[in-house]
């Protein structure tokens, strides 16, 4: 098991209200998992607690290796003093350089590799940012709306590519698209309002790999299950 959260209780340093109350969750198997829930329910906060960016919570978080957990989000920027290509090359461990070329192709970044980050579109920015995280040594990569502003077709292609290229890694994908998490995620951690108990429940996703036709009826059932759970 990579990660287990037990009885996590947390309130923001400035606020009195609880964000999480006795929250439990775990990531037992590798794969592409989702963290889903309404806006403001604390998805990013939970992700940052898991990544070790936020402390001061009660309860326990067991991690196999804290250094192996990375958290990426869509507000990040690459430094502006070099091109996207130069930056990616510089932050890629030597052993992963061949992977860099594969990801550039798969994520359709070839056309903007010589540009500065500020010259990219929002979608390209998010793809470039995600690429550099995928090139690191990690066990779990938390993708907090990392594919926001990316075209739907490319987004699907990227998720399928990630699943193919990193079958042994853990991913926790935060998205507001029910259809997307229902389609691609193996397990979906449904984070609910603080007043609901339990605050977090697990729903099985369709874990689609893009190589077979999707069972639409099964997908609809999963989506309904997610919506009802929320």
């Amino acid at each position: 098991m990579l990660l287990q959260c037990r009885n996590v209780t947390y309130r923001y340093p400035q606020g009195d209200a609880l964000v999480f109350n006795d929250l439990n969750c775990r990531l037992a198997d590798p794969g592409f998992h989702g963290l889903f829930g309404p806006s403001g329910v604390g998805k990013s906060t939970l992700a940052r607690i898991i990544a070790g960016e936020i402390n001061g919570f009660a309860g326990e978080i067991k991690r196999r290796d804290r250094a192996g957990i990375l958290y990426s989000c869509n507000t990040e920027r690459l430094p502006g003093w070099s091109s996207v290509g130069d930056h990616l090359t510089k932050v890629t461990p030597a052993a992963h350089l061949p992977l860099l070329q594969e990801l550039i192709r798969a994520f359709d970044l070839g056309s903007c590799i010589d540009s500065r980050f500020s010259q990219l579109s929002l979608g390209q920015k998010n793809r470039a940012n995600l690429t550099r995280y995928l090139l690191q040594d990690f066990d779990l990569l938390i993708m907090d709306e990392s594919l926001a502003n990316v075209d739907e077709a490319i987004r699907k292609q990227i998720i399928v590519t990630i699943k193919k290229m990193f079958p042994d890694k853990y991913f926790l994908y935060i998205s507001h698209s029910v259809a997307e998490v229902a389609t691609f995620c193996a397990r979906i951690l449904m984070l609910r309002d603080i007043h609901k108990s339990p605050q977090l429940i697990e729903v099985a996703g369709r874990d689609h790999h893009g190589d077979t036709a999707m069972d639409k009826a099964a997908l609809e059932r999963t989506m309904l299950e997610i919506v009802h759970a929320a």
Partner: peptide
């Protein structure tokens, strides 16, 4: 927004 990646890694 820029430092996060370097801190994380």
């Amino acid at each position: 927004s820029i430092e996060h990646f370097y801190v994380m890694t």
